[in-house]
């Protein structure tokens, strides 16, 4: 088996914050707690979870915009966390991110050309003429005519702006793109355009995606494998088909059941979870999901369940599956 493009081992990120000027003990927020996963070249891993589960922190740690407190990130065989700053800066050519809201991720004062050319200017020595050609080609690739070079973000619709953001991310011909809720700010009809575009670009450029979302409908369409996160941990991970056909973790089940589907004829038993996601500053003991879980057992309150494989390629962290799985 070949080495995966990205291999994450035991990744943890703890934010500490002094609770007062004179106090020495601070609060600790465990945003990521011992995550491990891999992504193979050319595949799409979906990360699903609600706010506060750590999915955006994960994206920032992978790009080393944040420095994780523990763990290793191997990208194309190299340990990113061990790279010197300047090497890392150059490594960023190969890994890019597209953020949720293009209007906040595109600098409002730059026009389309400046935005898309910025990565080229940063990492290459192209002449302006070469850049113009390159930007025009990138625009065409994301389905925009070259007039968009002179438009500023506020002159764009949400879908057009997200296409510009995508062109910018592709400018340096990366291998790996993190998509952090790239369609959440868009209307349904535009979302469909962007999703089709993402899939087409992936095929043409052999891209590897990490697709972060809270929308299960979107991820089941585009994801190959899906990891469900809850409070800084991956609670379940398996193929896209299987997670929808046979969700095993009680949280995954509740998440699927809570997602509204446009089909009024579908009768189903809704699982409505009580309460809210606990604070990561003071997470519950044992399995962090236990206060909201309908199947809670004694051991859930004290012991975090280890991830175990319930069938080939299906990993669940839940005490329910410990015997006879």
């Amino acid at each position: 088996m070949t080495e995966p493009l990205l291999r994450v081992q035991g990744l943890s990120m703890t934010f500490s914050r002094k609770s007062g000027f004179f106090s020495r003990v601070g609060e600790e927020l465990r945003a990521l707690n011992d995550l491990s996963f891999t992504i193979n070249a050319g595949e799409t891993l979906g990360i699903v979870g609600e706010s506060g589960c750590g999915k955006s922190t994960l994206a920032r740690c992978l790009l080393r915009l944040l420095t994780p407190t523990a763990g290793q990130i191997y990208f194309a065989g190299q340990d990113l966390l061990a790279l010197p700053d300047e090497t890392m800066r150059r490594m960023r050519q190969r890994m890019q991110i597209v953020l949720q809201n293009p209007f906040s991720s595109l600098s409002p004062r730059l026009n389309g050309f400046q935005l898309i050319a910025e990565p080229l200017r940063t990492h290459t020595t192209m002449s302006r003429k070469e850049m113009m050609d390159e930007v025009a080609a990138l625009l065409a690739e994301v389905g925009l005519p070259s007039e968009f070079m002179s438009r500023h973000p506020h002159q764009l619709s949400g879908g057009q702006a997200q296409r510009i953001a995508l062109a910018r991310a592709l400018a340096l011909n990366p291998d790996f793109v993190i998509l952090d809720e790239p369609t959440s700010a868009l209307d349904v009809s535009v979302q469909a355009q962007i999703i089709n575009l993402l899939i087409r670009l992936q095929k043409q450029r052999a891209l590897t995606y990490l697709f972060i979302t809270h929308d299960l409908g979107v991820i089941q369409h585009i994801g190959d494998r899906i990891a469900v996160m809850y409070l800084g941990k991956i609670v379940e991970e398996t193929s896209s088909e299987r997670i929808f056909a046979n969700p095993q973790h009680p949280y995954t089940q509740a998440l699927l059941s809570s997602t509204p589907l446009p089909d009024p004829s579908r009768s189903r038993q809704r699982i409505i979870l009580p309460g809210t996601v606990p604070s990561a500053v003071d997470p519950p003991s044992g399995c962090s999901f236990h206060p909201r879980c309908a199947h809670v057992m004694d051991q859930c309150r004290t012991l975090y369940p280890a991830a175990r494989q319930t069938s080939v390629g299906h990993h669940v962290s839940c005490h329910l599956y410990e015997n006879g799985a």
Binding site: L63, R89, R90, I97, L99, S104, L106, S107, E118, P119
Partner: peptide, 14 residues
Amino acid sequence: ERAYIEAARSIGVR
């Protein structure tokens, strides 16, 4: 803290 500053950092702008 704006996303476009983070976006610029993520493409390796100095």
